[in-house]
Design a protein around this nucleic acid. Structure first.
Length: 662
DNA sequence: CAAACAACCTTTTTT
DNA sequence: AGGTTGTTTG
């Protein structure tokens, strides 16, 4: 490879020196398949960004490099870092998520497999809404009269079947056998869901991947074009890909086999959405001649933390053998903290955080992690009481909140007048209009084959419909900017917001943020696609991103959302057997393995301080049991590695010397 | 008969 | 806090 002289060549060479041997080998790898097993904190991101910079420096056109990551943010950050390593050429590197890349390719080439050019993307809650409509109709048919699963469960079931590439029937029998007696109804709803997606030109998240795979597999000219255009493919978090994504990569790399995948099988935590960590275990078999490089030196955590995490992950059944080591000497051992109940746990965490802050730790260097979004509710109250500002990551997506979806629905019917789902939403917002009326109005619109004009032609039923008509008369997608359209919609929607939500002032602020985002777009269609695919951060989240970067706020996060991040001190709360691992995982060995990996991810986020907390004496109503053991993943660990303490009545810690019986 | 309202229940994780 | 279910209202 003959690198063109670069003003920063010296800097780049110096940066290369800072890598360890394994990292450098990965960065300098020439062509052909490469698998990098990157343990937690082993400099995975550094390795990827250095390799991107090196490929560009070696004269590969930046646009021919495809960097697939798990979130858009991760891709952008890596590209930014590559720019800092090399120069602005790295800006043109193609980066994104599997879903966004599939979307881009389908917009360009989807016609080849008969995909209509104006397809709209259904996000998860759109999909659930559509399934909900079908479910409601199915309920009325006497043959299906028995209780059907909730729409959420249905969406989950369908998605799993698709992502695992297996018939619905098998998936139901395996994962929800208690619905087996309603199999016919489930199949009928599934088929109807697929039919309506076609009818309304809808594509859901899973379809993006499935259709992209089909495009690559069935249209050789398109595959050759795409594969030829992206000659170097780099994939982050490969352990979290599912079967379809793995197939897509096989097809993309078909022409050149320049595929680098990076991941850690021990951190695979997305099986619930079809990810299969066997992809990473089997990668060398799928690509004979694969070079395998292991990154085992940990640059993040102190030795006592690493000793514990190594011991925990050693219990995993199936994995690439690896043992992380560090050169960082010293450090205090992690602490297992037992509190009487949830509130005692919260109060102790708040006290300890206060001490850390008083000792000079930046708030943004402290994180509290938990299994599920609602686990932090009590802590949030205590933090507010103590006036410690925090941001919460994970849990439910802001852009999926009702008021944002309401506003967007008005814009979506402009872009696609036959979007039944959005019409339904728009119409049922009106007073005295429920599902039945909405449905008959929608039919009128479709029959008139005139979209919005069809609505305008309807006889006025009441004032509400008059107002809606006035709105649509004022909207002209051809003549108005995206933000102006949004402005009109929000003006119209505010009264509805006020009567629908008690907390409307907060929600009104979100709508203003939404408007700010709209200003960045020229085409309504691309704004809507982005909102469904990679919702721009807004509201709380937008502030959150700025604040995370400013490192000035305590972070509360689900473990899933914490993946890839690190903090000086980490608290894992609710490390209680029955919560983490969750009770529902107990029956299934694979799910338990995933819970174990999730605990591993949580613990390996810590650089210096790690506190594993659990309340004992928690009564679980569904089981009628008292949960009082620490998570089985950290139970029965030598006290020397994980000292155990109990919080007393004054919130002080008392060391527990002996392992109590029971 | 359809819509609005009130009372429950049940809550994993997310592109 | 949300969705689902059952009940009341228009």
């Amino acid at each position: 490879m003959n690198a063109p002289p670069s003003p920063r060549a010296a800097t780049a060479a110096a940066a290369l020196d800072s890598l360890n041997e394994a990292q450098r080998a990965a960065v300098e790898h020439d062509e052909g398949p490469l698998l990098v097993i990157a343990g937690a904190g082993s400099g995975k991101t550094r390795t990827l960004t250095h390799r991107v910079a090196r490929l560009v420096a070696a004269g590969i056109p930046p646009a021919a490099i495809l960097l697939l990551t798990f979130t858009r943010k991760a891709a952008q950050e890596m590209i930014q870092r590559a720019i800092r390593l090399l120069d602005r050429r790295c800006e043109r590197v193609s980066g994104g998520t599997f879903h966004s890349f599939a979307h881009l390719m389908l917009r360009q080439h989807g016609g080849a497999i008969g995909l209509p050019p104006d397809f709209a993307i259904l996000d998860r809650s759109d999909a659930e809404d559509l399934i909900g409509l079908i479910r409601k109709e199915a309920e009325k048919r006497p043959a299906h009269g028995r209780l059907l699963p909730r729409k959420q469960t249905l969406a989950d079931l369908f998605s799993r079947a698709v992502n695992k590439g297996r018939p619905l029937e098998e998936t139901v029998l395996e994962e929800h056998a208690h619905f087996a007696d309603r199999m016919d109804a489930l199949k009928a709803i599934f088929a109807e869901y697929a039919r309506r997606k076609r009818e309304h030109h809808f594509v859901d998240y899973d379809d993006l991947l499935v259709l992209f795979r089909r495009l690559l597999a069935e249209v050789p000219e398109v595959r050759r074009r795409i594969s030829g255009a992206y000659r170097h493919i780099l994939v982050d978090e490969y352990q979290d890909t599912n079967r379809i994504q793995a197939d897509i990569l096989d097809l993309l790399a078909d022409a050149h086999r320049n595929l680098m995948v990076v991941g850690d099988d021990s951190q695979s935590v997305y099986a619930f959405r079809g990810a299969d960590f066997r992809n990473i275990l089997e990668f060398p078999r799928r690509f004979p001649g694969t070079r395998v490089i292991r990154l085992e030196e940990n640059y993040r955590s102190t030795q006592p933390i690493l000793d514990l995490t190594n011991l925990v992950i050693a219990r995993a059944r199936e994995k690439y053998a690896k043992r992380l080591f560090t050169r960082r000497a010293g450090g205090a051992p992690p602490l297992l903290v037992e509190a009487e109940d949830e509130n005692a746990q919260s109060r102790w965490v708040v006290d300890r955080i206060r001490e850390l802050l008083a000792a000079g730790t930046a708030p943004g260097e402290i994180a509290v992690l938990f299994r599920a979004g609602y686990h932090s509710f009590d802590l949030e109250i205590e933090l507010a009481r103590a006036q410690i500002p925090f941001v919460k990551v994970g849990g439910f997506k802001f852009s999926e909140s009702a008021h944002i979806k309401d506003a967007l629905a008005h814009l979506r019917v402009l872009a696609n007048p036959y979007d039944r789902l959005s019409w339904h939403r728009v119409l049922t917002l009106l007073e005295r209009i429920g599902p039945k009326h909405a449905e008959s109005i929608y039919r009128g619109i479709v029959n008139a084959r005139s979209g919005v004009a069809g609505l305008l032609a309807l006889p006025s039923r009441n004032d509400e419909i008059e107002k809606l008509k006035a709105l649509f008369r004022a909207l002209d997608p051809q003549a108005m900017s995206v933000a102006d359209l949004g402005q009109e919609v929000i003006r119209y929607y505010l009264p509805i917001l006020r009567r629908s939500f008690d907390d409307h002032p907060r929600r009104a602020k979100d709508l203003e943020q939404l408007l700010g985002i709209m200003e960045r777009y020229r085409r309504l269609e691309s704004f809507l696609a982005d909102m469904a695919l990679e919702p721009p951060t807004l509201g709380v989240e937008e502030r959150l991103v700025a604040e995370l970067e400013a490192k000035d706020r305590l972070v509360l996060s689900t473990v899933h959302s914490a993946k890839g991040l690190e903090w000086h001190s980490v608290f894992v709360i609710w490390a209680l057997d029955g919560r983490f691992p969750s009770l529902r995982a107990l029956a299934d060995e694979e799910e338990m393995e995933e819970e174990l990996r999730l605990m591993y991810v949580a613990m390996t986020r810590a650089r210096e301080g790690l506190y594993l907390c659990y309340p004992c004496e928690v009564f679980d109503r569904t089981l009628g049991l008292v949960l009082n053991r620490p998570s089985r993943f950290i139970d029965r660990i030598p006290r020397s590695l994980l000292p155990k303490c109990r919080v007393d009545g004054q919130g002080r810690l008392r060391v527990v010397k002996e392992e109590e019986s029971g």
